[in-house]
Design a binder for these strands. Structure first.
Lengths: 242, 242
DNA sequence: CGGTCGATTGACACCTTTCAATACGGGTGG
DNA sequence: CCACCCGTATTGAAAGGTGTCAATCGACCG
């Protein structure tokens, strides 16, 4: 049975800006269904268009681009509350692939209603733009990491950022968060080789700052990690939930 | 004397999606003035908010973030037609600095009218979102370059992309485009050191693929550069003009 | 003419990649 | 039940791309 927007467990998470009662009803009308996909399944394919828009209700995933030579750049990690398919709705096609890393449940919205959206609810239209701006901000931060930080501080940055993000959507239990990715995924996100990612992460582990086993990440010393990364303020920005 | 939107020279450039007559009038009403700034001047400052939004009418610039340790990541280059200040209008403050590299002329819009914008003109609101999505796409492409390409193909990618972008806004004269940046700017955009950028660019020059002197870039062999960069399709996307 | 800024080069250190091999757990077929 | 295979994590060693340090050069400027 599909979750009603009214009962959406995400709305109360601190990452998201408050919902107006009207907006809840509006989104409920816009929501055409719910969908589950298995771990490892692609949801949106680079170069394809999509008839739907999605909001992640449960589960985690990856966005990535594939280069001509086969190299892969992970654009970012996909968490509950993320709104997927906006690019395909605006430009003709997706510029990257979105793939489920764990089993995933998604709210489905009809793309053909997307423009009406702007006409009938300016407030929500504004929120969509806000979302795009938040995404842009985060990509800028990632670019700065990949471009300027060395491997140790890049990994420290990633750990801290992922941890804060998970906290904001209620996935953290104390200092522990789910992190169902492979080291190769982290390497491809930071522009590092798998081997070097492994060895560099091991340094942080040896210093007792963080550990990572069986899809679970434990952050023992966030402040030291921030120091290593040279982080002054959080990259996480509040955002609307669609 | 300020340029009337009706007479805007940018509108006819191939980069931009067609304007509806109504939109021209609407933007004219929204435009509160014009502004010129000198080369080397910051326009929007990281961490600050802004009471205005701008569209670049003439001139070129840079967006960049500064890290705690002083390193600088150039987010992208600013060309005529770019819409600036959206982040500050949506989130509380700018996440990066925008600086004029050449003398620059800007159309000025009042930020306080920005929300009304969404209420009174859904079509233009949609366009703002489109713009944000285009920006996001480009940042993803940049991230892939910085993360996955080696120095030679990264620089080749930058040259080709910059060249195509300049062509699309009518700045190219044959194979020549204005490129008023320093090698340090290019280095900071690609996450490379100045010295290595210089030596690597020299390789492309020795192969007669490109030259760059006195703020002018000459692209002799775009196809070879694309091959080196491993570019399959252009990163440039048509976009609305604000 | 001294001073500054950007481009260019050479030498060298070192961070990161690549190549290879081992280890470990889960799944599968005999 | 066990041998075998596969994906992932881990390590060691060597090669190589990139960064850092330093010095030179040319153009511009007060």
């Amino acid at each position: 049975m599909a979750v009603k927007c009214e009962d959406c467990p995400l709305r109360k998470q601190p990452l998201f800006t408050p919902f107006k009662t009207d907006d809840v009803r509006f989104m409920q009308r816009f929501k055409v269904g719910e969908m589950s996909i298995d771990a490892g399944t692609p949801l949106l394919l680079e170069g394809n268009s999509s008839a739907q828009l999605f909001t992640v209700l449960r589960g985690m995933g990856l966005r990535y681009k594939t280069l001509e030579n086969g190299d892969r750049q992970v654009i970012n990690l996909v968490y509950p509350g993320d709104f997927l398919g906006l690019q395909a709705a605006l430009m003709q096609e997706m510029q990257h692939t979105v793939e489920a890393t764990t089993e995933m449940t998604l709210c489905v919205f009809d793309r053909s209603a997307f423009y009406d959206f702007f006409v009938s609810n300016p407030s929500r239209a504004f929120d969509v733009t806000w979302l795009a701006a938040v995404e842009e901000h985060f990509l800028g931060a990632s670019l700065a990491t990949v471009g300027q930080r060395d491997a140790l501080s890049a990994i420290a940055w990633a750990v801290v950022t992922v941890f804060e993000r998970a906290q904001m959507v209620g996935l953290a239990k104390g200092m522990t968060i789910p992190f169902p990715y492979r080291q190769q995924d982290l390497a491809d996100a930071l522009g590092l080789s798998l081997v070097h990612t492994n060895k560099t992460f091991a340094k942080l582990r040896e210093r007792q700052l963080v550990s990572w086993h069986d899809g679970v990440l434990v952050v023992n010393d966030p402040q030291s990690l921030r120091d290593i990364a040279g982080i002054t303020e959080s990259e996480i920005r509040k955002r609307p939930l669609m």
